[in-house]
Each structure stands twice: as C-alpha cells, then as structure tokens.
Simulated assay, not measured.
Amino acid sequence: MSTIKIATHNGHFHCDEIFACFLLKNLPRYADAEIIRTRDPKVLAECHTVVDVGGVFDAEQRRFDHHQKTFTDTFNSLRPEKPWTIKLSSAGLVYVHYGKEIIQELLKKESLEEHERNHLTEILFDKMYENFVQEIDAIDNGIDIGENIKYKINTNLSARVGFFNPGWNDPNPAEKEETGFKQAMQLIGTEFLDKFHYYIRQWWPARALLEQAIAKRFEIDPSGSILVFDRSFPWREHLFDIETEQKDTLGDTIKYVLYPDLNKTWRIQAVPLNNKSFDNRLSLPKQWQGLRDDELSAKADIPGCVFVHASGFIGGNLTYEGVLTMARRSLEIGNSNKRKIQE
C-alpha cells in the first residue's frame, strides 16, 4: 500500500499548518504519512490531503485551505451547536473535522471505561478547541485579543513556532527550514498533549472530588452553602457544570469553599458569579476586607485569622475550626445585610 501524502506549502511556515499536520498524524491511517512541502499545483493534486495551501476548502476531498477570499467559515458555521465564531485556520479546519476522532484515539491510551471515554470525547473536543486551537486560528487570521491593547504577547505558541524559521541571513535556509519544521511540530505536539493530559489526568478527576464534597455539604453546615475539600484542586468549572445539571436541586446555593493550603493553614474562597467573573455570590464581609492577623481576628471576633483579601474573594485562618467559623459568620452577615436591603 502506498504511503499517504499530506501536502502543505513550502517557504516560511506557521503554527496552523504544522499543527494541522500533527493532528492528522495522530490518526492511525495518517501515522506513517509523508509530509510534502510544496506550492506546485501538480504535486498538490497527487497528494491525499492538503492543508493551508491550494486555495480550496472541501472536506470530502480532504482539502483544507483558508486563504481564498470566499472563505469565511468558523467553528459555529460548520457546527452550529458550537459557540465559537473566530475564523478558522487550516488547524481549526482539521480539528473541526477530525478532532473528535483524534481525541478518541488519545483516550484509548488512558485507563478509562468505554462509556467514560465516549463522555470525555465530547467534553475534551470543546475544551481543547476553546483553550488551545482557537488561539492558533485567531493569531493566524490576524484577530486581536481585544480593543485598546496596551502590550503585545510575543511568547505565545504561534510566535515560538515562528522562531524555528531560518533567519534572513541564514547561510543554509533550505536546510534550516526542513529542520525547523520538524522541530516546530515536536514543540506543538508536546504542548497539545500536555494540555490534553492536564485535562484528562488533573482537571477531570477533580470533578469526582467536588461531587463528593457537594454530597456532604449538609454535614458541614445546615445551609448547604459551604463545601470542604481535603486539598486544593481545580473546582470552579466543574461546580458551574454540576449546578447546571442539578439546577432544580442545587441551584447557586454554594457560597464558599474551604481547603488547606501548602502551609497547612486553611483558606476560604468565595464562589464567583460565573467561571470568568471577578464578582462573587457572597464576598467575605466588607468590614474584614484588607485586614490581617490580630487586627482581623479582633474585628471578626474569630481566633486565628490570617488575612482577608481587599476584594473579599479569599481569606485564611490557622485552623479548620477557625475558617469554618469565618464561613458561617460570613453567611450570617450576608443574610442580615440582605434582609436589611429587602426591608
């Protein structure tokens, strides 16, 4: 059987076509594929799959270019159930069409039951696009992060890939280009897999710990508004997902999470309004904010207080009993203030 050929353009390379090639080579049928770098239309026509060159987007024909004037596709336009509206690069095009299959292949290497792999495929397909691929699409298409930008980020993945290109005064540019392309693919692959493994090995297992804490919340306090963890872990996204799933029974009743820090003292953290918000459902009391140690302990009338941040989103106490008292007192003050407003 002849080797599958993946074609992309030669000359100065970019993050998107290198990443597109890396993604394809994670599929078994492309594992041994040869990457051809050319702009020759005759050679492109003979290749099985073409990315970032050729002026054609046709998924059925495995042509994934985005440079033609007629191209306007986004993740949302190709998958209307998805929210992302950044114009796609060749990386995004390949990811939209093959991303789920690639993630399924990567998940086969993990110790997971089939039903969990299927469930995680859907979750990680979205997470990896939103938090990895989308940035590559945006930068390749010249889309700024936002308005009124005060400084430029020069150390993103796309910028670092660019450093592998030969310099203008390189004595052997053709040789450097081929070597640099391979080095850049290794860099992108390592970072993509690092992100993937974070989600599967750290982020996802945290959900089970959060579910356990939610199940025990009434043992902590009759309000059910306080969660206690035995360690710090990524809980915010999971909490909002679980609340959405259990909105009839859970809603937004959870106000604080408590957990030990590395110094074996305890932290109290207010739950934000949403995953991207800096505002809280119930900040620690205003009269505590910005105070520390003895002054804070005296003001709160709670022994062992360490600090409360000036914004009221986090605080600390030397003991579990102390931090739990801070949470309960905060609830009391918050409820009292709410009643005064209503009156």
Results as ranks from 00 to 15, higher is better:
Trp168Gln: 12
Tyr129Asp: 08
Gln134Asn: 00
Val228Thr: 05
Gly167Trp: 14
Asn148Met: 13
Glu191Pro: 08
Glu175Ala: 14
Glu178Trp: 09
Gln134Tyr: 12
Tyr199Gly: 05
Asp144Gly: 10
Lys152Arg: 13
Pro173Arg: 02
Asn141Ser: 00
Leu157Cys: 10
Ser158Met: 08
Phe192Val: 06
Thr179Phe: 14
Ser225Asn: 05
Met185Val: 02
Ile226Asp: 05
Asp137Tyr: 08
Asn131Ile: 02
Asn172Ser: 11
Phe218Glu: 14
Lys152Gly: 13
Arg217Asn: 02
Ala184Tyr: 06
Ile149Tyr: 06
Gly162Lys: 14
Glu135Gln: 04
Ala215Ser: 00
Glu211Tyr: 14
Arg201Gln: 06
Ile188Ser: 03
Gln212Glu: 07
Ile143Leu: 15
Pro173Gly: 13
Pro173Glu: 09
Glu130Ile: 01
Lys150Met: 07
Glu191Leu: 15
Leu193Phe: 11
Ser232Gly: 14
Val161Ser: 07
Val228Ser: 01
Ile200Arg: 01
Gly167Asn: 08
Leu210Trp: 01
Lys216Ala: 06
Asp170Tyr: 11
Ile214Val: 03
Glu147Ala: 12
Tyr151Val: 06
Arg160Asn: 04
Ile214Ala: 01
Gln134Gly: 00
Ile149Ser: 12
Gly162Tyr: 11
Asp221Pro: 08
Glu177Tyr: 15
Arg231Asp: 15
Pro222Thr: 00
Phe132Thr: 04
Val161Lys: 04
Asp230Phe: 01
Ser223His: 08
Lys150Arg: 09
Gln202His: 03
Glu130Asn: 13
Ser223Tyr: 06
Phe229Ser: 12
Lys152Cys: 08
Asn154Pro: 08
Arg207Asp: 00
Asp140Thr: 09
Asn148Arg: 12
Leu209Asp: 06
Gly180Ser: 03
Glu211Phe: 10
Ile145Trp: 01
Leu157Gln: 09
Ala138Gln: 04
Gln183Met: 03
Asp194Cys: 12
Pro222Lys: 00
Val133Asp: 00
Gly180Val: 00
Ser158Asp: 10
Phe233Ile: 10
Glu178Thr: 03
Leu210Glu: 00
Asn131Thr: 04
Ile220Ser: 03
Lys152Asn: 15
Ala174Met: 09
Trp235Pro: 05
Phe181Cys: 08
Glu135His: 07
Trp235Asp: 03
Asp144Cys: 05
Phe181Asn: 10
Glu178Gly: 05
Ile220Asp: 01
Ala208Trp: 07
Pro205Ala: 03
Val228Arg: 07
Arg231Asn: 09
Gly224His: 02
Ile220Gly: 01
Phe192Met: 03
Lys176Asn: 07
Ile139Tyr: 06
Ile149Lys: 15
Glu130Arg: 08
Ile214Ser: 04
Lys216Gln: 04
Ile139Glu: 00
Glu211Lys: 07
Arg231Lys: 13
Phe192Tyr: 10
Ala184Ser: 10
Phe218Ile: 12
Phe233Arg: 09
Pro166Asp: 11
Glu175Ser: 13
Phe196Asn: 05
Gly167Pro: 07
His197Leu: 05
Gly224Phe: 02
Phe218Pro: 05
Leu187Asp: 02
Asp194Pro: 15
Gln183Trp: 03
Ala213Ser: 05
Asp194Met: 06
Asp144Ser: 14
Ile136Asn: 05
Asn172Ala: 11
Leu157Pro: 01
Phe229Val: 06
Asn131Asp: 04
Glu130Phe: 04
Glu211Asp: 12
Trp235Leu: 01
Glu191Gln: 15
Tyr151Ala: 11
Asn141Gln: 12
Phe196Ser: 05
Asp140Gln: 12
Phe192Ala: 10
Met185Gly: 13
Glu219Ala: 02
Ile143His: 12
